[in-house]
Design a protein around this nucleic acid. Structure first.
Lengths: 330, 330
DNA sequence: CTGTTAGCGCGTTCAA
DNA sequence: TTGAACGCGCTAACAG
């Protein structure tokens, strides 16, 4: 079991000093003859840079942390995929950490990133998060909030949640539905809160009373939905704030034995593979995930590289209404 | 901008030696009085261990790499979620690296894990992978193959793919369908290859001719499917080897304007949220993802801790047929 | 049980 | 341009 080669071994074999090897590895000018010998030495020894040693020395780990509620979720798994690809192209690795909407777990995540000296972090914060605490937990580490907002002095990129929810609600109103209910899990989550506001705004503009159907967990949500859909003042259309909420609505339709024709018109958030395949095909509000990730990483890396120590900015992108038939359009 | 505290700072403030602090941090016995002073010093200085320095010193990073085709995929995103949770409980962090079924990208991933000194790796290898190369790329690093097989001397955990595909096919045969076609993307992927074999075995046992409907990318698959479903000798039932393939089959049904009643009976792999909601509800073969992840991490960590330097083992778990209606069951 | 000391592998002075 | 020497923050060996 021979040990792995170090710069010193390479230096010895190439007949140069260790620092010359170091320079060569970092693309600093080195005399061509030396460079050639070093290259050969690296080759024969199978030398490979040790990132942990480099990290200790220069204080940068080439690692970014991603704190999010859950990876197994269409929206976040797509975001993670894009983040990983982007980070890879920049020579960085990604550390995903989930908090499952629990503050204590988010604190653990922050502490872990501190110990691992992440160069930057992207965070979709848990409900109840205090911006200052996050800031304090990661001193001098660039942070960008993703799909959530922390404070005006922290970069963020998100969907124009209120506007998107208003758009969806108004589309339904345009079809003549009045008694539109809004269904969502965990209404204390930032983006849901915003969407609820947008929905209420749209309802208020027509002097209609908003109805929020919600529950802490999804089993309970299904129960509440069942009750609401069979009640006397049952809604005539639904705005669902997430793919998961939509799934539960459709499950409830099914459990209630509602035929496609008898199902309530519905618009959901997030476009996912099976949206066109349910009956009737689902009208959704799509989030521009790729653009969101793109902006988020650009902002993060420009902070990390210190190049742009400009004003913190908050980028918000519009949702796109993808009309299929569940909203009442033909 | 004050610098972060180090063990030395803590030691000085507590009036002890640096190694005592180190011992305290690692839960090695320290005199209670000293422990108390150290605890206070840590508190007032806001000291936090530097994992990069520790990693350099002890040669372990408390990090495991996960190489997989793509995160945005129901199966893998669920697996990643479970891996992250499990690793967190063991005090480790996870580095996900995707290869998108490309060998060159997989090589890059392996090299990256080598530079970052990952303590272990879980890999769903790209088609064409040579076990020895992976082995050589990560000398002395425990590896476990997940949802793929590398070599008999490398731990692995996978679905009993052949058996599962046979079971699905036989279920369809039991309903009286003869001309069953198997649809899949990238048939060179390990688990698909195995499933194809299982399908063929089942067909052969009844002296029936197998038909594989496949294509390199999914747009093309949809085209091929369209042709196959309208041809003269069109199949009377379908076995779909992945959720993504199933999605494309259903899309094709839709593009062809087939009414639910006219759709071919189908059994798919992977149970996903919307499976019960398509029309007719989808019969699927569920993979026990949680159990698979559980075994994989147990094996990996027992190698990392060196406790069990026992024989390499290959664990294979049965799939579960979840009968809904798309298979012809009522 | 504790403190002192010597590196882990690298990048970075600084003098040559 | 280059090499020697030092130190990033931590743990392990050793002597007390």
């Amino acid at each position: 079991m021979k040990k792995r080669a170090t710069v010193i071994d390479v230096a010895a074999l190439a007949g140069v000093g260790a620092s010359t090897v170091s320079r060569y590895l970092r693309d600093v000018r080195v005399k061509p003859a030396a460079a050639k010998r070093i290259r050969e030495a690296v080759e024969t020894l199978g030398y490979e840079l040790d990132e942990t040693a480099r990290a200790l020395r220069i204080g940068r780990t080439r690692t970014i942390g991603v704190i999010l509620p859950k990876i197994s979720n269409v929206f976040f798994s797509q975001a993670m995929q894009l983040i990983e690809e982007d980070a890879r192209q920049r020579g960085c690795t990604v550390i995903p950490l989930t908090h499952q909407d629990r503050m204590s777990q988010q604190q653990d995540n922050l502490a872990k990133l501190r110990r691992f000296r992440a160069d930057g972090v992207i965070i979709t914060s848990a409900p109840g998060t205090v911006a200052a605490e996050v800031q304090a937990a990661l001193p001098h580490v660039p942070i960008v909030a993703f799909d959530s907002f922390l404070a005006s002095d922290i970069d963020s990129v998100l969907l124009r949640n209120r506007e998107a929810a208003r758009m969806g609600t108004e589309h339904l109103l345009g079809h003549g539905y009045k008694n539109i209910a809004c269904v969502t899990g965990k209404p204390e989550i930032y983006s849901f809160k915003e969407r609820i506001t947008g929905y209420k705004e749209a309802m208020a503009s027509r002097h209609l009373t908003p109805t929020i159907i919600t529950a802490q967990d999804y089993d309970q949500l299904r129960f509440v939905l069942g009750v609401a859909l069979q009640g006397k003042k049952r809604p005539t259309a639904l705005l669902s704030l997430s793919d998961f909420a939509t799934l539960n609505v459709l499950m409830t339709f099914r459990e209630l034995g509602l035929k496609p024709a008898d199902r309530l018109p519905i618009i959901g958030f997030d476009d996912f593979g099976f949206a066109p395949l349910v009956d009737p095909p689902l009208t959704v509000i799509r989030q521009p995930i790729d653009t969101m990730v793109h902006y988020a990483l650009n902002m993060l890396f420009s902070r990390i590289e210190g190049s742009g120590s400009k004003e913190p900015q908050s980028i918000s992108l519009p949702g796109e209404l993808i009309c299929r038939r569940s909203c009442g359009c033909s």
